[in-house]
Design a protein around this nucleic acid. Sequence first.
DNA 1: ATAGGGTTAG
Length: 530
Amino acid sequence: MSQRRPLPSVVQFNQLLTSVTKMKHFSTSLHLFNQMCSLGLPVSNYTMSIAIKCCCQLYRTKDGFALLGCCFRRAIAPNQFIYSALLDGLVLEDRILEVEMLFKKLIKQKLCEPDVVMYNTMIKGLCKFSINVTALALLRLMEQTNCKPSIVTYSTIIDSLCKDKMMDDAFKLLNEMVYDKRILPDVITYTSLICGLCNMGRWDEASKMLKEMEDENISPNVKTFTALVDAFCKEGKVKEAEAVINIMIERGEFPDIVTYNSLIDGYCLRGEMIKAREIFDSMTLRGLIPNVVTYNSLLNGYCKNLNIEKAVQLFHEMTGKGLKPNVVTYNTMIQGFFQVGRCVDARKLFDEMHAQGQIPDQCTYGIVLEGLCNNRQVEEALSLFHLMGDSRLTSDIVVYTILIDGAGKCGKFHIARNLFHGLSIKGLKPVVRTYNVMIGGFCREGLLGEAKSLFLKMEESGCPPNNITYSVFLQGCLKNKHYDDVEMLLQEMDDRGYSLDASTLSLFIDHIAAGLLDRSMLKLLGKLVY
DNA sequence: ATAGGGTTAG
């Protein structure tokens, strides 16, 4: 094209870029764009928006902004297409603050009148961070302008509400969409709702939705079916999941890699590793190549079932096939090694992940710290924690809680205590698990008074005790023969609708059998066991 | 004549 004379029009070049981009060959498309620029071929705002989109989709939003600079130099006025692509890139990279800043700037400086797609992109970004309130506020803002919300706008927010288990709000918005705006739900809207209902175990309503959608002549697609498969698998109902897969095949929709990954995960969860491996092998026969998620599921299955040798073998199989382990892969394997006490191997893999350019995340550090503590290497854990310095990783309450727990369990309760008291200086608020760990620690040390005052503090700190808190505290009371509060605690549990776990119950039985507790306690205990 | 947005997985 570049050598033809006369030169093809800019439109024809754009058409080329469009088709390459639609095939998601973003880097090829960018390469072509760069050639066009260096050959001095014509470039329009269409060309620029495609090039910027490609940068952004490649997680190179920075380059996208550099191209925005090119627009100004070439006197190409950036429009909604260009700014939406940039906003989308920022969303993709989780740069939510910059998303909001750019959007506000566009409006304030009147650089670009937002259109429906730009609003939808903003709403998607907010929803990605569960900022549903602001997403809804943008929807209301749209209504006040002449930019009508579309099915995409509603579906994005409905999906987010479903993911956050706010089904009532999701249905409220659905009703508003249908009855006020006369927009009918499509397969995507239904899929989100069905997914939300399934994840909450509201199977009856989910199947009602499924029926309703069929009545409206909207056929469920692969994603709809996969949502069902996934929900069944997460509840361990693999037979039901397989039934769904059979139905979908009968209907001419074929399970994809995501569907199979869910099923494999389901079998792994049940510890049925042979079956999981069978599904894995059968995927290949169907022409589906297992990806890193597939391998991670199986690796997790082998590790959780303490078959580390199989996991190691599979890990090598995976790399041998040219698949690059990611952070989740390493996290899974490291945890697997720690669980069987192979700390040296865990450490080796932790170093290897750095070498392979996989940046450890909060999960990694949590796993490593927990692994070290559980293997009685609390000193190691502490020095690693200090080595981590002041980063996002050390300002994570989950990581802190693990370390507090580990220190306490390794007989370093004074350290646990110091860490706990240092939380507020770090600006961190304890979560229920943190309190549970500390109460457990106080009880272990025989400091029942302190355990009790912390227990009482939970409610006023806006962090009410859960059933685990009660179990931990009750076990502490029993083991320390501190019976004064026991009856009151059991009564409170009953009031809150909590139940007693097996180990706490058996401890009670022991104490009653030994004559340490009165048999009259049995009646109350009976109410707490289902 | 040409460009952008929403549903599923570890």
